[in-house]
Amino acid sequence: MKGEILTTKGAVRAEFDFWVGLYLDKFLEGLEQKKFIGNKCSKCGKVYIPPRKICGDCFEHIEEYVDLPETGVLTNFTFTKWAISERRPRQSKNIKMIGLVKLDGADSAMLLPILETEPENLKIGMKVQVVWSEKPQGQPSDIKGFKPIGGA
């Protein structure tokens, strides 16, 4: 059967520039000053980070911004050697650690890299602290990741 299928390569390429919107804009502005900004639903009191326009539970506009600390709790994690790539499946040399980090005082968690530790040391519920990039530019990449408090 082989050899009878003709394949043609197709290049699909589209470039986008997404306007992030006022809410994420505020968050990114905070990152530039090495600060976490979330927002709080006035009805149910849930604190979201990154800030959202609408509380999914209450279907209400959220207007109140709150500052959040640089420390949080690791609520879930995984590690993989597979690169998360858009092009092809490939494995990288370094194992990448990924965690859901819930900042102290927030009700939603962010999916971010975990740094400066080994996969064996990761535990759900461990305290973590942010690692900022040297020159924040107001991009999501300003958060380099989170590291365990006390350098575990």
């Binding site: 394949t7 390569k9 197709g10 986008f16 520039d17 006022l22 990114l28």
Partner: peptide
């Protein structure tokens, strides 16, 4: 609508292989 920051993104599928069965029109 005040303009906000932008985040770049792309849809890039260079490895797509469209299949065609030549057997039927051989």
């Amino acid at each position: 609508y005040p303009r906000t920051r932008r985040v770049h993104g792309n849809w890039y599928l260079s490895s797509y292989q469209y299949k065609f069965n030549v057997k039927r029109i051989n």
